[in-house]
């Protein structure tokens, strides 16, 4: 049970949150080609190292936020995107 630092609630057990995965940017749906769209849907960098990801503070503040987590060590640091 790792601790996720919610920017609103402070540190919380990960069971209180939901991991929404690697941060991906959404192409303009009106103009994106299917290839671009499906890259957004399916392809992930999936690194063994630092990844910027989104969490949802489900039992706490109910806010989405991003942090950086090292997927090889589970270390967590603040995200520049947050």
């Amino acid at each position: 049970m790792i601790v996720v630092p919610c920017p609103n609630c402070g540190p919380r057990n990960s069971s209180d949150l939901r991991n929404a995965g690697e941060l991906v940017s959404r192409p303009d749906p009106d103009t994106a080609s299917l290839t671009e769209w499906r890259s957004y849907l399916y392809l992930r960098e999936n690194p063994a190292g630092w990844v910027t990801e989104t969490w949802y503070c489900r039992t706490g503040c109910r806010r989405y936020f991003t942090i950086e987590r090292n997927t090889a060590t589970n270390e967590i640091r603040d995200s520049e995107n947050s």
């Binding site: 069971s15 209180d16 039992t59 706490g60």
Partner: peptide
Amino acid sequence: VFSASVAKVT
């Protein structure tokens, strides 16, 4: 004031 899981209920 806080929110939490109590016996698996939010």
